[in-house]
Write a protein that binds this DNA or RNA. Structure first.
Lengths: 223, 223
DNA sequence: ACCTGAACACCGTTCAAGT
DNA sequence: ACCTGAACACCGTTCAAGT
């Protein structure tokens, strides 16, 4: 209890360890968004010179990949009771919802995820359990894999847009206003005009559920 | 025929016009990808100093938005004979395929599209005709709008991934190798192991069609 | 009106040198 | 082994001044 914090080797303990660095980077992400996350600012926050970061991350992209992997730690693979007994479509939906929430948990989380290609355990677990749900439901390998990819791509595409509409945080006139303006000004978009209330709605959860429902019901016709 | 090119006003004609600037920017995008497209390099290509670009585009983001709008010019709204007589699900699928191809027509096209929010005519036409197809099929306003958004989000998510796997162009070991390595090394991903051939397949058109089929068949159960 | 020149406040990355 | 200091080769953006 009174041991100095993390004194694993001899020599003086490094000021920089990858785990703390990734967590600090996520904190900076939440504060200022992806564009404000620079190697220099991260180094500052870690009390170190910028060049020192490169002993643990070869490039900024490597750092971002590690961040994406860390973000997916919040995805709960539904092997537990919550989804273990439910039917396959409910379990697949739960996985997709969990992915969306994990991405939403950090500012620009979807951008970080979409811009990297992690092959870490959290990422692979997500994919493995998703495909497992579908194979367990009787889908063949090709259908199970392609269906999981479709669900992930939809989820990322949706959340990317959801966070883009969210990130400006009160700078510009905000997307809905701009769209309403453009549509009404032109006057040549009857279907956009009719659906403007839905298109400018901020009920992103509802939107997400609708698309997710299409995918799972489409899958159901194949089962 | 012998008139000097584009002599519309008096005074000397500007060296910089927005249309040529956007086209040059797209050419630079195709050459080096999004990360290599800088305002300075674009200025160079236009034979001008970097600051001069700011008379026509307030920020780089504005330029990127104009590029996204230009990219969508290749999307053919299926009001013509190709899709005019087909049923609504075929027409909606044709629109989605057309969007994917337009994004694929430029390097990092999906990234440019996903990172911007154009309200130009090409963008609005795409959305209006998509929603129009669905309303014409009998869907109510809410369902038509949310279905079109789902299709667009899926298409963007898919194409983002498709181009990410494509862009490196032979630098790193390429995504499929890395994935195979990570999965086989861990040995704890039975479903990934079983579906590795599909997951590492490069038949992106097939993958896209599968997800698109899920969405349209899911929609069919609502019609 | 349109563009130049030059600056401001930054970037990611590398690498000899220190401790 | 781990980090500093300092540099290299860039960025986006602004703005007085020229023509």
């Amino acid at each position: 209890m009174t041991t100095p914090p993390t004194r694993t080797g001899r020599g003086r303990p490094p000021r920089l360890d990858p785990v703390r660095t990734i967590e600090t980077a996520l904190a900076l992400l939440d504060e200022g968004g992806l564009d404000a996350l620079t190697m220099r600012r991260l180094a500052d926050a870690m009390g170190v010179q910028a060049g020192a970061l490169y002993r643990y991350f070869a490039t900024k992209e490597d750092l971002l990949t590690a961040m994406a992997e860390r973000i997916l730690a919040q995805v709960s693979a539904p092997t537990a009771e919550e989804g273990g007994s439910a039917d396959w479509s409910a379990r697949l939906s739960a996985l997709a919802r969990s992915l969306r929430l994990a991405l939403l948990a950090h500012r620009d989380g979807a951008r970080v995820f979409a811009g990297t290609h992690s092959t870490g355990p959290n990422t692979l677990n997500l994919a493995d359990s998703g495909i497992g749900i579908l194979r367990g439901a009787g889908f063949d390998d090709a259908d199970a894999a392609r269906a999981l990819l479709a669900v992930v791509h939809y989820t990322v595409g949706h959340t990317l847009e959801e966070q883009a509409a969210l990130s400006p945080a009160g700078e510009a006139p905000a997307a809905p206003e701009v769209l309403r303006e453009a549509v009404t000004a032109a006057g040549t978009y009857p279907h956009l005009t009719a659906t403007l209330p839905i298109l400018t709605s901020q009920d992103h959860a509802d939107r997400f559920e609708f698309g997710l429902g299409l995918l799972t019901r489409g899958l159901l016709t194949r089962a």
